[in-house]
């Protein structure tokens, strides 16, 4: 017999045996997966940001399929993804959970706020904050080293020339990474429709605030008096806004002597606000 025939027969037999083995194994050791998990993962944004509270998109998809997570649990995907996920599962679409965006509660940049030292270390707010509590005169304000911008997975925060972070709201997905990274806790997630913000977190007395910052809240209470819905209260030397009550009427913005309260353009007055 020629070598060709021998090799053909032996290789053919071996191939057939392996194929048989694989066929048996694939039936016997098959892992049952929910096909919906793959489908859901397919429609998710896939950035693994963790904003849903799960370890990543795959794990969120598993959570939704097993009923542990709501269909609209992905804040990044918003209404569009919520609808697709509901379709895959064959349940009713609950709509978007209400889009939120990050807001920076400090207006004291290089121009407005004093610094009390020259920080020379790595450009990271968390490290700067650990050196003598930061080089900013105000112990509540933004340090300006851009850690929020560098941790943002969506490039939704940029540092402006004044040393303050600016949130690009159309890119922000409210994943909350900047909130967790900020050592001064000045970033909060707020409903997108809210357009009036008290951009100060300082609980110092008015005099102390003025000595280090020209745009800090001095707790003069004018905004509290001007507010028609009772959304603003002054507590611990700081005006605080209750977004559940605020209707973007901008009356507080007009009376604020320090320009601490800021109104965002393109966010109209909210006509109806369900009492909560």
């Amino acid at each position: 017999m020629s070598t060709t025939v021998v090799s053909l027969i032996s290789m053919g037999t071996m191939g057939a045996l392996f194929a048989l083995g694989l066929a048996v194994a694939s039936k016997k050791f098959a892992v049952e997966t929910d096909p919906r998990v793959d489908e859901i993962e397919e429609v998710l944004p896939g950035v693994n940001c963790g904003a849903c509270g799960f370890a990543g998109c795959r794990s969120f998809a598993e959570g939704v399929a097993s009923g542990k997570a709501p269909t609209n649990g992905c804040p990044v995907g918003g209404a569009r993804v919520a609808k697709l996920v509901a379709e895959i599962l064959g349940v009713e679409d609950q709509g978007s959970a209400g889009r939120k965006v990050a807001q920076v509660l400090c207006k004291g940049g290089h121009e407005e706020a004093k610094r009390r030292g020259d920080y020379m270390g790595p450009q990271d707010c968390r490290i700067a904050n650990a050196v003598q509590g930061g080089d900013k005169g105000c112990s509540y304000g933004c340090l300006g080293y851009g850690t929020c911008a560098s941790v943002c997975p969506f490039d939704a925060i940029v540092m402006n020339e004044n040393g303050l972070p600016v949130v690009l709201e159309d890119k922000c997905t409210a994943c909350g990474k900047c909130v967790a990274a900020c050592p001064r806790d000045i970033i909060v997630l707020v409903d997108e429709v809210q357009g009036v913000h008290i951009r100060c977190r300082s609980e110092e007395l008015g005099r102390a605030v003025r000595s280090v910052c020209s745009v800090g809240c001095i707790a003069c209470r004018r905004c509290e008096k001007a507010c028609p819905t009772g959304a603003i209260t002054v507590e611990d030397n700081l005006a605080r806004i209750d977004y559940d009550k605020c209707i973007n009427c901008r009356k507080c913005v007009e009376v604020c002597p320090m320009n601490t309260i800021e109104a965002q353009e393109g966010k109209p007055v909210i006509k109806k606000k369900s009492a909560s």
Partner: peptide
């Protein structure tokens, strides 16, 4: 390199 600074940051986190 600022080695210790980043190790400290990691320790705090």
């Amino acid at each position: 390199r600022p080695l210790l600074q980043y190790i400290r940051l990691a320790k705090r986190e």
